[in-house]
Design a binder for these strands. Structure first.
Lengths: 241, 241
DNA sequence: CATTCATTGTATCAAAATGATACAATAAGT
DNA sequence: ACTTATTGTATCATTTTGATACAATGAATG
């Protein structure tokens, strides 16, 4: 059934940019609404009796199954022409409902953008009751998104660039243990910029935030790299490379 | 008269951290509501037919008289216990109104925080119709603010720290022409950290974003400093000192 | 089992940025 | 002229970064 007005705050919603790292590429979760051809960021409404943050967390949990999520708010989009009535009508029609023209979900919406960084391999994307699919897309090969969702994605990536080094970005995109090469790849893909291997390694080790573990024997005919994990106790003074 | 519900978006407001620089200290505009003892950030509601950004701009313009303002959104505060009903009742009572308990302004509010950087000397703070005074306060000597406004101020300052160097912070806090010492003071006060005079000067000049003008004869018995202005054409590659 | 090959971990030296200090060049006032 | 506080640069030591080289693997090959 449709969300009920009295339970929710009107005119305000959230959208999440959920990112995962495959080891080579940055992926984003995009959902497609049933029979509507509408691609959108996973979003939702805020209940009158819940924190904004909790509403977002609930939405991400329902779609990824994850309990512990690194969530950061990055921007609130409030242009008056953010008109979601057309896609929402199509979505409702796709589900077999007809919305009266004064239905609250057809009104103007201001949306709060959050990004979530998750471990790509731990997630089983789950469609919600309005969407028939939710899938990982390469961040550089997105379908056409509804309303201003493309702009929201851009702003999220910009914020992540600023946050990298200040917030535990790498920690959340990488598995518990990872190689230096993977860590470097995360930095490169987010900052869209290449680093010199030796300098990157020296700097990362010099910051004293990594703990070295056993080697990773990949089967390749070359020296096996060490695995590292973040030394979370020493992460306070972290800086950009 | 009171704001009318049908003209405004409910449950959503904005608050602005308006900062000015005296040459020595960072000041913030705080308003005090009539007969209520309530100190608050200048804020307001969003009309149903205006952009969020325009609503904020309108609010700042009405209180400062400025048309060109550097406004940046920094965070949206959405805890469910953001209860402004008590202060709002007092404010209304102070104005001689009584609000019915189901009045929309007494409901839960989510607020979008913006900061504005303005030229301290160009402003004549103007109270709005609900407040009886609006004054500059030293950023380190604030009165007790209502609800979570102190937290909003903190978050604003944190954001400005991050933005310094990336956005034209100094440009907006300083007059058209300024001395190197004033510029350094802005950096020091925002980053809460002192810089070596010679290194700061070398770095600033080295960035090639300043234009040198005539000297400023202050009347003091020492060498007169040069005045500088920002070379806005070359500001793209600006970095932190 | 020596050889080959791609990759990793460091060392080394050059170049650039920063820190510390010194000092000459003012603007007034005495 | 002499004094004083401040400003603008220069200089040299120190630290950080860039560029390059190279030894040390893992596994496959013959």
């Amino acid at each position: 059934m449709l969300p009920i007005e009295k339970d929710h705050i009107t005119n305000l919603a959230y959208d999440t940019v959920i990112l995962g790292f495959t080891g080579k590429e940055l992926k984003i979760l995009i959902l497609e609404y049933q029979n509507s051809g509408q691609f959108a960021l996973p979003g939702g409404f805020i209940r009158r009796d819940e924190d904004l943050y909790d509403a977002v967390k609930r939405g991400v949990r329902e779609r990824t199954g994850l309990e512990k999520i690194h969530l950061e708010q990055f921007h609130t989009f409030g242009k008056k022409n953010r008109d979601s009535s057309y896609p929402f009508k199509k979505i409702a029609a796709g589900k077999g409902y007809t919305l009266t023209s004064d239905h609250w979900v057809l009104d103007r919406f201001i949306t709060v953008g959050y990004y979530a960084l998750i471990n790509y391999n731990q997630v089983q994307p789950t469609p919600d009751k309005f969407s028939d699919s939710i899938n990982w897309y390469d961040i550089n090969k997105l379908p056409k998104l509804m309303i201003d969702h493309a702009e929201i994605v851009d702003k999220a990536l910009e914020s992540i660039q600023h946050d990298l080094g200040k917030k535990p970005i790498g920690e959340n995109l990488l598995p518990e243990k990872f190689t230096m090469k993977e860590l470097q790849k995360v930095y490169e893909i987010i900052l869209n910029k290449e680093f010199r291997r030796t300098t990157f390694q020296r700097k990362m080790l010099g910051m004293d935030i990594l703990k070295r573990h056993e080697k990773l024997y990949t089967g390749a005919a070359n020296k096996a790299p060490y695995l590292y994990s973040f030394n979370t106790k020493k992460m306070e003074k972290a800086e950009k490379p």
